[in-house]
Design a binder for these strands. Structure first.
Lengths: 126, 126
DNA sequence: ACAACCTTGACATATGTATGGTAGGGTTCG
DNA sequence: CGAACCCTACCATACATATGTCAAGGTTGT
């Protein structure tokens, strides 16, 4: 046996066996299995588990959040949508006159104008 | 009044007033306030709220996850650490001999070698 | 074969996320 | 001024995350 089984891996990685299974289930770590189905932890996996621990502790991040980061990396469209959302400048220049405000906003992202129609109405009514 | 107050914004954005406050608190949306402290929703904010809704629904993402994406964008070091973690190739080439396996791993990321010492011992003992 | 270890699945709990209320007290604006 | 609306601060709930533990049954290695 060249690789460690789950309890040995737990001792050397700092995670509990329970969490090692949980982490695998979360998709953050792929593990080879023995013919009988035992999870096998080699140096590569152990290293990842240790750095994972360090990473989560150092930045106070959760496994779920890392899972989302993973999604972001893998899903081009998700990443694009998120990027686009953040890129939309939320700051309103103070020197824009109240009357020009709406137009100024609408000119920024034509693709989003449609949904803004009712807002326009509501604003007019106010 | 050129901007909407929270209940009006709720009606046009699809979020409940409660959630509008929650979203502001989550840091995903900054809002100007009236002199008396009322949250003010202009077209920019309303647009963002609508696209936010769309984004979360379309990809089944939560506000907390978006919050993490925000952190990733803003925190260079976090992003680097996460990137590095994911970049570490978890795949082990099958043609690496058992004896060379550890060395092969260790050569990959020198900064991480220290923590691997006990693993080495455990592996030797096995 | 047998002791020691692993697997999956289920139950349990503490904390966090996402929402909805309510109460006491200020703000707006006609 | 007064009705209508907003604010902050709680309480409450349903589901998710993170973890522990236990039971019934299969795997390993000597």
């Amino acid at each position: 046996m060249e690789a460690l089984t789950i309890n040995e891996a737990a001792r050397t990685s700092g995670w509990s066996p329970r969490m090692l299974r949980y982490i695998e289930g979360s998709g953050l770590l792929e593990l080879p299995r023995s013919p009988g189905g035992y999870r096998l932890y080699g140096p590569a996996q152990l290293q990842r588990l240790r750095t994972l621990r360090e990473l989560l502790a150092r930045f106070d991040v959760g496994l779920a959040e890392l899972g989302f980061a993973r999604r972001l990396r893998g899903d081009e469209r998700l990443r694009g949508a998120v990027e686009e959302w953040f890129e939309t400048e939320p700051a309103r220049p103070e020197h824009v006159a109240a009357g020009d405000w709406l137009r100024w906003e609408q000119e920024k992202h034509q693709a989003l104008i449609a949904a803004a129609a009712d807002t326009h109405d509501l604003l007019e009514a106010a």
